[in-house]
Amino acid sequence: MSTDRVITAEHLSKRFGSFTAVDAISFDVYRGEIFGFLGANGAGKTTAMRMLSGLSMPTSGKASVAGFDVYKENEKIKQNIGYMSQKFSLYEDLTVKENIRFYAGIYGKSNQFIKEKTAVVLDRLHLTAEGDKLVKSLPLGWKQKLAFSVAIFHEPKIVFLDEPTGGVDPVTRREFWNMIYQAANAGITIFVTTHYMDEAEYCNRVSIMVDGRIDALDTPQQLKKTYGVATMDDVFLKLARKAVRSAD
């Protein structure tokens, strides 16, 4: 893991009217790191992620992603990131290959690049035989893995994963995390939100949001030590119980 900072946030805030969704959060994410972004529902994770991915303008504070300012250079940020939402977001009525071609096309990749890389990706996913099948005919686990492959297809510097393993069985989750490790080893920074505390253990560092603030940020081992508990689950519960804001 390098000490290159690919995401920096300083007192980043987002207010909707009188409601402060994200309250002056500050953190750095390093290149090739798997950064877990935890928090109860309604703690402000998604809003924070939307600000970093250029979908939403911060109200105040500073942030840069891949070296670009989130206020002024969000178009450049978009070129350098991948995104996988909690909703499954491939076109069900297109084939596997068509989906890849479509999303790669959006990022302006050449036909040559798409063709070569599609073969590699399908081979890695063991989906070569299914390339011309409609996505809706695939089992959910494969769809999720495909969606992740599509999110990093254009070789972004950072990929944002918003609860990527929701509703997936443990075996597939394991395989999914193997893919995440592979991507991280290839130098892609992973910014991931999750509700599964066992997944939090897989992260290099974890931040926990409570009521729009980041209340804890460290390696999973260090966090457990600090709070004097055995599992990440307990760390999370200890912090999340302080929340005043009700989860919706």
Binding site: L55, Y83, S85, K87, S89, L90, Y91, G108
Partner: peptide, 13 residues
């Protein structure tokens, strides 16, 4: 609804 809109909005399009 499908979530594909969000992906496109995050893209450089």
């Amino acid at each position: 609804e499908m979530g594909t809109m969000e992906i496109m909005l995050v893209s450089p399009m």
